[in-house]
């Protein structure tokens, strides 16, 4: 278990930025923390990274309590804060050398060379950070988070504010890194989470509203609707209804019918279809995931 949080809470005045959030992340997993602005993503990450020390609940990284083991913990974590703060006056090499010295790494120069190559900064390495584009600054931010080869990476909105090309490059970089590390990254873009990871944690107003495989995002992204029907006996024929995309057999004469975009409400169509086939309906209901209203916020 790389990351383990239990009943994490954080209060600002009367408002809860985080309210009893619990989850675990296995070693080597890449997990997306998804949620609209103000959901509590940054707060969660500040706690896991050991930055924020006053909060309710427990947080452990690699078995270490973030409150009592900060120095040892921080050696094993790489953290990219939101908005990627950097010393704009420093040169890339100078900055990364400074960071390497903080970690007391041996062979500082070769470590710096290596991370510069790894993050694709070779051609820019002698430039001032202040003169770089946003995409390259993001690489510098990733470089400072990874120079000590941490086993856990915490990236707070690593792709926000990038143009489409930079976005693709940074995502690819994260994907490359992900093969060897546990990564938790936050985003308010559903497609991104779906593209990068197997698992998504969804936060809304400080609460964890879903912990699912990213496949569930697919349904929402494609505006699919899933309707569950129960019949009195099994139906062997072809579900030929307009807009139907997938039929799942759920056992006990129950079926899950997945629809794409349709003109009429698929529930009406199902009712008519079943009656025409001479079957009787025991149940007809739409399966809404608990996260749908969060998605609405994310997409508007």
């Amino acid at each position: 278990m790389s990351i383990q949080v239990q009943d994490l809470s954080k209060q600002y005045g009367v408002q809860y930025a985080l309210d009893q959030v619990s989850f675990t992340v296995e070693k080597g997993q890449i997990v997306g923390l998804l949620g609209p602005n103000g959901a509590g993503k940054t707060t969660t990450m500040k706690i896991i990274s050991g930055y924020m020390s006053t909060f309710g609940g427990e947080a452990h990284v690699n078995g270490m309590d973030v409150r009592s083991d900060p120095i040892e913990l921080k050696k094993q974590i790489g953290y990219l804060p939101e908005h990627n703060p950097l010393y704009l006056d420093m040169y890339i090499r100078e900055y990364l050398t400074f960071i390497a010295r903080i970690y007391r790494l041996e062979a500082v120069n070769s470590k710096v060379d290596h991370i510069i190559e790894r993050t694709g900064l070779t051609r820019e390495q002698h430039k001032k950070i202040g003169s770089l584009s946003k995409g390259y600054r993001q690489r510098v931010g990733l470089a400072q988070a990874m120079i000590h080869d941490p086993s856990v990476l915490i990236l707070d909105e690593p792709t926000s504010g990038l143009d489409p090309n930079q976005l693709v490059e940074i995502r690819q970089l994260i994907r490359d890194i992900a093969t060897e590390k546990t990564i938790i990254f936050s985003s308010h873009i559903m497609q991104e989470v779906q593209a990068l990871c197997e698992r998504v944690l969804i936060l809304n107003q400080g609460q964890l509203v879903a912990d699912e495989r990213t496949e569930v995002l697919e349904r929402v992204l494609h505006k699919q609707r899933k309707i569950v029907v129960e019949l009195t006996q099994s139906f062997e024929g072809n579900w030929s209804i307009e807009g139907i995309q997938e039929v799942l057999s759920l056992g006990h004469h129950r079926y899950g019918l997945v629809f794409g975009k349709t003109n009429i409400d698929p529930r009406l169509a199902i009712f008519d279809f079943v009656t025409r086939q001479g079957h009787k309906l025991l149940e007809l209901r739409e399966e809404k995931s608990s996260i749908e209203d969060v998605f609405q916020k994310l997409t508007t």
Binding site: K46, Y51, P70, K74, P81, I102, Q144
Partner: peptide, 10 residues
């Protein structure tokens, strides 16, 4: 915001 970087280093 670089203080946050320093505080998350050992």
């Amino acid at each position: 915001g670089t203080l946050e970087i320093l505080f998350t280093k050992p």
